[in-house]
């Protein structure tokens, strides 16, 4: 397994404000990497340093084993969070221009534009002015713009915001295909469901520092708190224990537990109390919970 992106002890400040504080992370080649964190955590600054728009104050950034530099830009595709296009330009012209800036010759990019526009179901809009397109359509155009030079590393900052469910699935499908074909993808988003559906590895940053990183599966199984789901008929007096945190739902109860032994204990108590168990399941923590807990400091 080779490393596509490696950040080593990277820091960046703007005046007094430390945007990124000694951040180190490695992104495996060909994986989908989730870069997570609340607003203002330092995600955008981190991404800008990978794309070489900004330079770190200290530490080093390596892309495919080489120190980050302007000449690597042609290998990186970037869809920024705050995005825009030239409103007065026609879509096709605009895409040709943006691909040209990445060094693609116009004949190649003309073909690729048509292929991608068809794939994303937006081909009939290519000769319209950009300002006539809806926000979602413009977003698909920007997505295409990030792909036209066939980058080996694709960075997507909130790619699904503002897209309807149909287009969200379409884009997810394309992202999976790209990943399968060997493109390394960095995905930055607030929507944890999307991360769970797409990402192989994640890194959570908060207040400019890394708080959690690794393979998604490992992160989840290493995470202390688990959930127990229990559904039963009969009285719930056996759950009345101050040391238990219980959430009540119409059809079931959810309990935070710390170990498998604790689950066993609760099961024993339930049977002793004469409850008829319909469902008993140990749940993996959702990324959503891990995120909220880590960021609000409830845990860890």
């Amino acid at each position: 397994m080779t490393t596509a992106v490696s950040l080593q002890n990277v820091s960046k400040s703007y005046g007094e404000f430390k945007a990124v504080d000694s951040l180190s992370l490695d992104i495996t080649s060909g994986c989908v990497f989730g870069l997570l964190g609340p607003n203002g955590a330092g995600k955008t600054t981190t991404i800008r340093m990978i794309v070489n728009i900004t330079v770190p104050d200290s530490g080093s950034v390596y892309i495919f084993g080489e120190p980050a530099s302007a000449k690597l830009r042609s290998k990186i595709g970037y869809l920024p969070e705050e995005r825009g296009l030239y409103k007065k330009m026609k879509v096709r012209e605009q895409l040709l221009f943006l691909a040209g800036l990445k060094g693609v010759d116009s004949k190649d990019s003309a073909n690729r534009i048509v292929t991608w526009a068809e794939r994303l179901k937006i081909a009939e809009w290519l000769d319209k002015k950009t300002e006539e397109l809806s926000k979602g359509m413009q977003q698909k155009i920007q997505f295409i713009a990030a792909l036209l030079h066939e980058p080996r590393l694709l960075i997507l900052d909130e790619p699904f915001s503002g897209l309807d469910p149909v287009n969200t699935s379409l884009l997810m499908e394309v992202i999976r295909e790209l990943s399968k074909s060997g493109v390394t993808i960095i995905l930055s988003t607030h929507v944890m469901e999307q991360v769970e559906k797409l990402c192989d590895e994640i890194c959570l940053i908060n207040k400019s520092r890394k708080v959690l990183a690794g393979r998604l599966r490992d992160v989840k199984s290493n995470y202390g708190i688990r959930k127990l789901l229990i559904a039963f008929d009969g009285g719930d007096s056996f759950l009345k224990d101050d040391s238990l945190s219980v959430e009540r739902f119409p059809e079931h109860y959810e309990l935070n537990i710390s170990s498998v032994e604790q689950a066993q204990q609760i099961l024993r108590k339930a049977i002793n109390a004469g409850a008829i168990i319909r469902k008993f399941e140990l749940l993996e923590p959702s990324l959503h919970e891990i995120f909220v807990n880590k960021v609000t400091g409830v845990d860890g």
Binding site: V51, N52, I53, A70, R73, I76, Y78, P80, E82, R83, G84, L85, Y86, K87, L98, L101, K102, Q142, A145, A146
Partner: peptide, 14 residues
């Protein structure tokens, strides 16, 4: 700067 395309452009040219 306002329509934010500048960030896309500077990811390609200085």
């Amino acid at each position: 700067k306002q329509n934010r395309i500048v960030e896309i452009i500077v990811s390609s040219v200085s």
